[in-house]
């Protein structure tokens, strides 16, 4: 049995991989993060117990011994308290208590998930859940060690150093140190994408800053999104520079006239360094962002360990959904040993 760990909606990719698993004749079970608390009911006895989960009236026994391979697609928690108000009082101290309760409930769920994952430790995983703890700054260090060029990067609390950095590089951008977040406010999502900052903005800043990340602004010829899958690399070029809206961050999608995206083949030396990086980070999957600069350099930006591969697979016709299913099938048969499919 192959266990698919995912989330309960907005997951077309999970469905497609499951269709391919079915085509391969492999039984699979999908467990969504929300199933642990949103509307399912279940029990587990510790130690060594199996999870007995009732979903949609069917009782399923999730016994570690029956699971040969696990696909960690993603894992979103749902909590049964989320539709209701925890405390009906907006005094400052009760708001604070509400935040603390919420954070404690999240922690409880995280511990529970951690236990479920550890019970399945002996199965062959396609990406262990620990990968979600990747740190972008450590990744830049590893990438440089692997021989990849990375953008000049400064993290500072001092405006003076930022000004020097600006003078050295001409143009700079800022982005968050960790994952970018979309904050919900009113009818809008406020998204922290990569943004160029100019001297006008710098002039308005105080002398002391919250630790902020700055990078040299690269002159892009095109951008590259590469999906790394168990030693294989599937790349796509994104022509973000034709359109002003997408020049700094292609995620400012132009839906009317989408950026051109085409299959791309990275030079062998760059592909080798990426493999080395992924090996060093102990990642079996990851979505990598690179830039090809106007002067012909390949610059590595970041890697997202649970990246969306649909956005590479579909336009390039790579059929990665099938490839993932084949790799899961191999893992279910042979464990983690690297045998060709």
């Amino acid at each position: 049995m192959i266990l698919v760990l995912s989330q309960s909606s907005h997951e077309l990719t999970t469905e497609e991989v499951m269709d391919w698993l079915e085509d391969l004749g492999l039984p699979c079970l999908r467990l969504n993060g929300e199933d642990l608390d949103a509307d399912s009911s279940w029990s587990a006895r510790v130690p060594g117990g199996d999870f007995e989960i009732t979903l949609d009236g069917r009782t399923l026994k999730l016994a570690a011994g029956d699971i040969q391979a696990v696909w960690f697609r993603r894992w979103a928690h749902g909590r049964r308290d989320q539709p209701v108000e925890l405390i009906l009082d907006d005094s400052r101290e009760r708001q604070e208590a509400q935040r603390e309760i919420s954070s404690h409930l999240d922690q409880e769920m995280a511990r529970l998930s951690g236990y479920l994952f550890s019970q399945l430790h002996d199965a062959a995983w396609l990406s262990r859940p620990s990968i979600t703890r990747l740190n972008k700054l450590e990744v830049l260090e590893e990438a440089a060690r692997a021989g990849l060029e990375v953008p000049a990067t400064l993290i500072t609390t001092r405006k003076k150093h930022l000004e020097e950095f600006m003078r050295t590089h001409g143009g700079i951008i800022t982005k968050s140190i960790g994952e970018s977040r979309a904050l919900h406010l009113g009818d809008y999502f406020h998204t922290m994408l990569t943004a160029e900052i100019g001297t006008d903005l710098i002039a308005q800043l105080p002398e002391d800053l919250f630790p902020s990340l700055f990078q040299e602004k690269l002159d892009k010829r095109y951008e590259i999104r590469a999906f790394y899958l168990a030693g294989e690399l599937y790349s796509m070029a994104i022509f973000s520079q034709i359109d002003d809206q997408t020049r700094v961050d292609f995620r400012h999608y132009n839906n009317v006239k989408p950026n051109r995206v085409v299959p791309f083949k990275l030079p062998a030396d760059i592909a080798d360094r990426i493999s080395r990086l992924m090996g060093a980070l102990e990642l079996e999957t990851g979505s990598l962002d690179l830039v090809k600069t106007t002067d012909g350099r390949y610059v590595f930006l970041e890697v997202n360990p649970v990246g969306q591969f649909g956005m590479v697979s579909k336009p390039c016709n790579y059929h990665l959904e099938q490839r993932v299913a084949e790799i899961l099938a191999r893992k279910a048969r042979h464990g983690n040993s690297p045998q060709p499919v």
Partner: peptide, 26 residues
Amino acid sequence: PVAYRAVEPIPIAGAPELRLVESRSY
């Protein structure tokens, strides 16, 4: 963080409405 000065509002209504339907929950 300085990045907060460049946060961009994207209208939620601007995103296409998805047709998410019920399925067998497993």
